[in-house]
């Protein structure tokens, strides 16, 4: 990966709070060529939905990762938070 062309993104992932869902997301993110720069995760115990914010960077288009995370069985939605996604300045 080239840090100069690397883009940073914040993904907001809503998921059923199921076994290993976090591990799955991290595995897919690494395998598809994205670095993880930060993460927060919270579960709403009322509806058992977890919200995960994932800061990632890569020179690959973010749509590749979104499509792959979306395929995971327990995921409800994946969106990029545009307000905090940016291209690294050199």
């Amino acid at each position: 990966m080239n840090p100069i062309t690397m883009n940073k993104y914040k993904l907001i992932i809503m998921t059923d709070d199921k076994q290993v869902v976090l591990e799955r997301i991290l595995q897919v993110t690494r395998y598809r060529g994205f670095l993880i720069n930060g993460m927060t995760a919270q579960v709403n115990t009322g509806n058992n939905i977890a919200t995960i914010e994932l800061l990632v960077s890569s020179d690959r288009p973010i749509s590749l990762l979104i499509d792959q995370i979306n395929k995971l069985v327990d995921i409800k939605s994946v969106a990029v938070d545009n307000s905090s996604s940016q291209r690294c300045s050199a």
Binding site: P61, S63, L64, D67, Q68, N70, K71
Partner: peptide, 8 residues
């Protein structure tokens, strides 16, 4: 059938 294959 797989969205992730489009534009991959």
């Amino acid at each position: 059938i797989d969205t992730a294959e489009i534009n991959k």
